[in-house]
Design a protein around this nucleic acid. Sequence first.
RNA 1: GGGCGCUUAGCUCAGUUGGUUAGAGCACUACGUUUACACCGUAGGGGUCAGGGGUUCGAGUCCCUUAGCGCCCACCA
Length: 890
Amino acid sequence: MAQYGLMNTTVRALISQVPDRVSLDGLETTWDQRWTANSTFSFDRTATREQVYSIDTPPPTASGSLHIGHVFSYTHTDVLARYKRMTGLEVFYPMGWDDNGLPTERRVQNYYGVRVDLTLPYDPDFTPPFEGTTKAIKAADQVPVSRRNFVELCERLTAEDEKQFEDLWRYLGLSVDWKQTYQTIDPNARAAAQRAFLRNLARGEAYQAEAPGLWDVTFQTAVAQAELESREYPGFFHKVAFLRPDGEKVWIETTRPELLGAVCALIAHPDDERYAGLFGTTVTDPLFGIEVPVLAHAAAEMDKGAGIAMCCTFGDQTDIQWWRELNLPTRSIIQRDGRLTRETPAWIADGPGAALYAEGLAGKTTFSARAAVVDALRACDAMDGEPVKTLRNTNFFEKGDKPLEIVTSRQWYISNGGRDEALRAALLKRGSELAWHPDFMRVRYENWVGGLHGDWLISRQRFFGVAIPVWYPVLPSGEVDHDHPIVPSEASLPVDPTSEAPAGFDEAQRGVPGGFVGEADVMDTWATSSLTPLIASGWERDEDLFARTYPMDLRPQAQDIIRTWLFSTVVRSHLELDTLPWTHAAISGFILDPDRKKMSKSKGNVVTPMGMLEQHSSDAVRYWAASARLGVDAALDEGVMKIGRRLAIKVLNASKFVLGIAGGQGAALELDPALVTEVLDRAMLAALADVVEAATAAFEKYDHTRALEVTETFFWMFCDNYVEFVKDRAYHGDEAERTSAVTALGIALDAVLRLFAPVLPFVTEEVWSWWREGSVHRAAWPEAAGLRDAAGDASGDVLAASSNALAALRKIKSEAKVSMKTPILSVELAVPADLMEAVRATQADLIATATVTGPLVLTEAPADAPRDSLGGITVVASKLGEPPVKPARK
RNA sequence: GGGCGCUUAGCUCAGUUGGUUAGAGCACUACGUUUACACCGUAGGGGUCAGGGGUUCGAGUCCCUUAGCGCCCACCA
């Protein structure tokens, strides 16, 4: 809860420890330690839901390194979190680590030089052969280990990674409650993922199906639509002849001649007159003697290739469609390892075709099989001309480097609206109920949900992940009965079906007739990540916490995982709790390198953040991040970090000055608005009230950039003009004049520190500690009303007018190329009528600040005089004195 | 092919419901050491607001159109 507000209370601040020399060095470590020691960011579990602002922090992928893009987007969240905390909300700001899944597996393989062999037993004394060698370990040199040993290594390595990540986040100043952490592989998360799955299963939302689907041959796992990436891939068109019974040739074009042995039909568009005579007849392939029908289907495109397509099981998604809709036979020849089947398929006729397959194709990769088929086609004159080079778009697994194949397998799915219009409509409605920042990101969600063409495939044939919590009976015949899965009780979660027996069975019954087998597949990492708001808020584990934090307020995340993380989270929350998981989504843009390319590991242009933080300071890097609006891609710009550093140092110096002029060490500073009596001081507070209003309104609209901008603009004006104006009065004025200036300076410093606190947590906290109790980050967000009261009827325009008059006088000296200390013996200013009163009212400060030693004459500027950048104030005549004599160098 | 965003000074970006002569910082130039700050201060130069058309008394802002850049989705014969 906020500790104090300026509104109706006079604050008496004791200035305790203003250093002689200020510095940014070491602030990160100092304040991280004190915040931890003081539990500054601990979540108060007594707060009610209305008093809580809860954040579904993205759990970073633990395997790998954080890059500057992470610093960028996590800063956006932290700035908002700190603002919300200061407005009096209790911020629930946990941190998770996404350590389950393929990235960890790959990292462990490379880091320790091991690979999983499911046949090996667990070795409790296993020591990895390599550890963190810098050179890549060849796959052939990797040592086979049991799954359990492998998982242990995963846990060991991610624990080390997570420690490093936490250190970086602390250094950056994330106001996370470090007592609220989770891992997506920890027992709570596994239990939550399995519980949610079992409930999906019980409601019929999770189901298994044996169907053709996208398959990565490198990782040997099924892949979901959301993990696809379309890439250009070089290929060749081959013109291949099929033979009619009378020997006449029908030419088709294909980029995948190696699939000739899997052909099921030739298909053309029903309106295509070229092939009208062929529909209903059969043709035979030139190599294997497979007789296939020529069929019509509207999905065939007349202007593609020859207009007649070779349909194989399965070359692409269209093949699946034709196979389904035309009831074609299944003739799969691609295996899960991406090679052609080792046995000659039954549908290939004995004879030369069978011999060709057995000798030239069996067990070959698609690449070498293609070459063999092309040679054979040439030899029997069934290929027209040379293959024609083409660049085609092909689906890849986003983490893979070989084109996906289509393989038939038994997999688990969860409904996501891809096959159910009512559910799709409900999920689109959820998207429309969510407040998106920026709003246009909603469209990406709508595009994605609108374009789904299947349910969410959640099973993966991998090792390090959350197990799918089911077993299957083994029938007396020895066959596995997949249709009647055995499920565990929720109380027993998490379970590992590959090492635990289901209730009512014992381990000896594993794999034997009458016994059971465990599901070996694990869940896709998104099946767990989609539950982060539930995992973090204690769903079914800590109902008290859950009631205080869920549905959450904010999902901050990157734009590229709207279709995965954001969408899947909406799906799970909708199915499980019939609600949105959060009310706001804040989408950060990408970081572009100086060549305006997206920064990513695969491009090798990643900048590691710690060096940047150490070089420029965390506040400076945060300033850079906070200068970019949500949803907008930003350039990595060290120039902006330098500006941030300059600002942070300026905050230290200006604060040192204000507190020094207030009496310095040991003095008491009364922040009593009634003591502010001078017009200029009140005008400054009025301007500050405007800034507080603007910054607050901006933050409420999730526009941290605008909030920073108005604060920063005010602060520089405050330093350059206001502070200069009041120096003379503060040093040499009478008691009332001096008190007015000092009090106004104190009130302004107090508000400015709080306005900057979300973006510059370290310097503001450092300065706060010089004269205030507690943490600035638990202080109340400034309110305009109190400042307005102090300002009385003064307007911020008065300060602007006098600042312009001051600039006009400075210009005289600057153009004369003399020191600012040079006295002005006499000067006449032309002032527009509407500014005259303001300039007149503050002319004493003006005269002192600009060292006007003689008459200052103000005349009214003509009504039609142009308004330049100084508001129309111009110098009519002036006379400068002698520049002061430079003091002798000491 | 469909969609979203962007294009303003050499660079990075503001520019609110259309309203005086389009702003800031960096960089650049000149000057200046001033009882907070040289990691400083003061002042200055620098822009056909991507191109074209339209609406309007008035357009950086609204509409149409063209081009370029980035991204999302679709496209695999």
